[in-house]
């Protein structure tokens, strides 16, 4: 190739007819000129494949109208603003839900539930019990509502209150057990100090102290185990009214008792296991001199005093 190709737009300018007469003249003299001229001339006779412009436009029109119809239909059915309204509603309810979070836990028969509260305090919920609290402002306001039985291991912090329909338990220390059933109220303190306030009684419990309220009379007693017995898969009773022992059995094994023939005010001291109903019935009722047998449908256990 000759030197005019060093100028890398030279040929382009030649094709466009923009060369100066002098440049053109010298280019015409070069030996490549003939070939370049032929390439240029021939390539200008080329044509791209023909096509039917109108047919394509009609096809386009058709495609366009289907697109357009689909588009307008969507707009008519669900206007865009409804999505934003729906999203806003969800967000508002979401904020409301998360900021006013009422937590509710419930255990059924034979169930136990371990709950970690927002400050890492632990609650073990025994069978057939309910626990409610508000997670909002938990640090400042540690209030819970308990129905049933639960064991609490409370982290240090502001006052920790458990509200029951029988009284309020305010924690001064760390570990305690509460049992609130229909006519029964029992608190055991395992560690630290617990203040119990019920309608006409107030008591501060130290570790190993326990209180129960039966028929509006407070009874204080001492115990020795380090954790509530039901956490160790057995239930221990210390001069507990028989009615309460039977409720524990019912909650634990999901059975019903016919109690019409026995004296429920008798006190029971002893243990029953959570693993075996037959064994549990035997350990509770034989020392109490009560016979037990299932009814015909196998749904209720009939209790009868042995005379």
């Amino acid at each position: 190739m000759e030197n005019h190709f060093l100028d890398n737009t030279f040929l382009a300018r030649w094709v466009a007819g923009e060369l100066t007469p002098k440049e053109l003249e010298s280019f015409k003299k070069s030996k490549d000129y003939a070939t370049f001229k032929r390439i240029n001339d021939t390539s200008q006779m080329l044509e791209a494949p023909t096509y039917n412009e109108q047919a394509l436009f009609n096809k386009l029109k058709q495609l366009r109208s289907t697109h357009h119809q689909a588009k307008s239909r969507v707009i008519k059915l669900i206007p865009n603003w409804t999505y934003s309204v729906a999203a806003s509603v969800i967000i508002i309810f979401g904020i409301f839900y998360f900021t006013n979070n009422n937590k509710h836990f419930e255990t059924n028969f034979s169930e136990q539930l371990a709950i970690i509260l927002p400050d890492n305090s632990k609650v073990e919920l025994n069978a057939n019990s309910q626990l409610d609290y508000k997670s909002k402002n938990w640090k400042e306001n540690r209030d819970l509502i308990l129905v049933g039985e639960a064991f609490f291991d409370v982290e240090k912090g502001s006052s920790f209150k458990v509200n029951t329909n029988k009284g309020v338990i305010e924690v001064l220390g760390t570990e305690f057990n509460i049992n609130v059933r229909d006519d029964y109220f029992e608190v055991l303190c395992f560690e630290g100090r617990v203040k119990v306030t019920s309608s006409n009684n107030e008591a501060i419990l130290l570790p190993g102290n326990a209180i129960r309220i039966v028929n509006n009379n407070a009874e204080l007693w001492n115990f020795e185990q380090g954790k509530p017995n039901w956490l160790q898969e057995e239930s221990i009773f210390n001069r507990t009214p028989l009615s309460q022992v039977i409720i524990s059995l019912e909650n634990r094994f999901k059975v019903s008792f016919d109690k019409s023939n026995i004296d429920q005010s008798k006190r029971f001291t002893g243990v029953f296991t959570h693993k075996d109903l037959k064994l549990a019935l035997k350990t509770v009722f034989i020392p109490m001199e009560i016979s037990y047998k299932p009814n015909q449908e196998n749904t209720i256990i009939i209790l009868d005093s042995i005379k």
Partner: peptide, 22 residues
């Protein structure tokens, strides 16, 4: 435009080289 002119020139040179002498 300058880049177009360069490509145009390059194209012609490439064609010239490929097509050989007539």
């Amino acid at each position: 435009v300058k880049a177009v002119e360069k490509r145009m020139s390059s194209a012609l040179i490439t064609l010239r080289e490929q097509i050989g002498n007539i």
